[in-house]
Design a protein around this nucleic acid. Sequence first.
DNA 1: AATGAATGAGAATTCATTCAT
DNA 2: AATGAATGAATTCTCATTCAT
Lengths: 210, 210, 210, 210
Amino acid sequence: MARTLPTIPRKSASQQRSKATVEALLDATARVLVRDGYDRASTNRIAAKAGVSVGSLYQYFPNKEALVAALVARHNREMLQLIRDALKKVASLDLATAMREMVKATLDAHLVDPALHRIFADQVPRMGQLAKIEALKEETFALIRAYLEDRRKEIAVRDLDAATSILATTVEALTHEFVINKPNALDRDRDRFVNEVTRLVAGYLTPGRA
Amino acid sequence: MARTLPTIPRKSASQQRSKATVEALLDATARVLVRDGYDRASTNRIAAKAGVSVGSLYQYFPNKEALVAALVARHNREMLQLIRDALKKVASLDLATAMREMVKATLDAHLVDPALHRIFADQVPRMGQLAKIEALKEETFALIRAYLEDRRKEIAVRDLDAATSILATTVEALTHEFVINKPNALDRDRDRFVNEVTRLVAGYLTPGRA
Amino acid sequence: MARTLPTIPRKSASQQRSKATVEALLDATARVLVRDGYDRASTNRIAAKAGVSVGSLYQYFPNKEALVAALVARHNREMLQLIRDALKKVASLDLATAMREMVKATLDAHLVDPALHRIFADQVPRMGQLAKIEALKEETFALIRAYLEDRRKEIAVRDLDAATSILATTVEALTHEFVINKPNALDRDRDRFVNEVTRLVAGYLTPGRA
Amino acid sequence: MARTLPTIPRKSASQQRSKATVEALLDATARVLVRDGYDRASTNRIAAKAGVSVGSLYQYFPNKEALVAALVARHNREMLQLIRDALKKVASLDLATAMREMVKATLDAHLVDPALHRIFADQVPRMGQLAKIEALKEETFALIRAYLEDRRKEIAVRDLDAATSILATTVEALTHEFVINKPNALDRDRDRFVNEVTRLVAGYLTPGRA
DNA sequence: AATGAATGAGAATTCATTCAT
DNA sequence: AATGAATGAATTCTCATTCAT
């Protein structure tokens, strides 16, 4: 029997395969990290879980850090997408409403994969490449900052950079704290959390109004 | 006349020796962590830096985690002491002033040993015993909460627990963020940082007043 | 004509490699045990002697105990094979002759590698997995028991299990004692040893006949 | 108040104290061996259990092996005493009865401290000094041999040394096997065990009579 | 004599990474 | 490109023994 000739161009096929392998590896990394913790997440274990040989892992990632960094990046991209979408819709809204949407989006972002997020926060050392994967922060900063610029007149703070930092950090930290350490409070009353944080930051930007 | 009995108990000599060894080990751990990072901080390296044998290290700490945990605890205790002292003096002061003192104390606490603090934040995995040691922040919570209780009437937030969480988390996170990622801003204008954070939290507690 | 497919499966190469490594490790373990004793037989030393890295050792054996257990098992299997072969041929023979063959086979078994056998007896702690590996002597028990069952009528002992235990233990212990502690006696007069032990056990099974 | 002068001569006092310490150490060794196994029985642990400092342990025993050897020796002495007493009374008795008494005494000896005996058999490596502490065997051999000499005429074996070896080894091994691996059988029917073993060895010495 | 802190060689084991097939 | 066997440096931890007090 004649061997069937491949109908799909080789390159494309292998490109697709590559992509699938990379995704499988990232998925496996996430699962192993969550299940076993960072310290027990060896490259061999991850490759096995991905149904791929260690050799293949190193075909796509030069070292363990790069693998984890890629996963962090993917996770951040997913979170960022939510923030981006939310802030896109907010341009025309008043400050308080805009802040509320931002808080909600941040919360949604943190709920994308809380278990994985927790591992990143608690166990993955932020050093080397990992230290730099703060792209999430940077774009969030830029987005917020752009919105505030638009509303400059309504805002009581002169130094927009500082205000943006404070805003972003506060919302991020409070969301993180509650998602990680007080998930029950959120389950019970998500709206109250959003209200309070919104009030906190809105009050900061426009004192006296609240 | 009977031979004078030794007034200093026998044990004290070796007890002092023990204590010195433990201190040396903790100091060495701090130095090695800061210099080499968590991953390169092996027990042998730490013992060597402490001028002590590995055996001695394990005489006092059952494993590496316990050693680092003890250091974290010591560091936290030092930071906590500053917060405690500040809040002690604050009982009779008005809200805004009290908040300002709290922010200043938190900042001082973070400046006790920023390099070490950064290692803890970035590299030391929070698992096992380490996860629990954050419990020291429970005392901060209690202290703040007690103050707020006293001033309950002036405060616009009903749920004191939630308010305390938000307050503590916000001040801690902002301080951390600026100490770690924007040290220059602090060097340039520490007062402005304190002002802004104070305004943020005071505004949250007593809206309309600011 | 289509390219000839490789007749030898890909895997076989690496499978053979694996097998060779395992064999090399077991051989090295035996040699190191005999030369240096159990306590000095470190996994690193064994790996070195096998011309293999420690890592490979742990690829195939989860810990030192498993390695030694595998060696004990291999040794027992070799010994058992001799017993098995001997008892196979003995089914139709009379009791005294059968016992003699069993004694001879046991002696041969103990002479497979007396030095190694001595290490096992004297130095290898029988704990954990090792404790269970003596289970191989269960097959000896079963073989003997089956033979006795066949000859039940000629035997003066009612409880066959007890008789088998006594038989097996006696022959084993005497052989061990002489091989280990009185090798000269055996060198001088192997037949006398066989005669005496045979008489001992045959007399037990069929008193009055001897 | 005047210090009471010691009424008991110093030397004797400290000699008694020494003896007590040594006993405490041996007792502690036995308990730790049984509880934790040979590998986990460290000198520090033993000293602690004995209520004595490690330093003191080394005052009385030059090294760990000597300590264990002393314990083995003490245990053997206790066992031997039983054998000795039994064989003393047996001089005038006929072969079968004498053998029976010897088997019973051996069994009693093995029941002195079966747990400890098992540790010695299973876990304590017989090397160095330990290899030589077969004094038990040697004296037992001598005692049995002396008895057989007396009864030479009734015995069918010419080589008394060989016969003694076979006798001693057989009884010892069977007793050991049953005490260690078939304790239930003994609990149920101790007499049967004694009967069978007696018959085995008596039949060997005086064939045709049984 | 006793104490117990200190020692440090050495053991088991892991895991990121390489490379022959 | 994939495979997975092999590598070996590095790490944690133990424990018999010593010795200053």
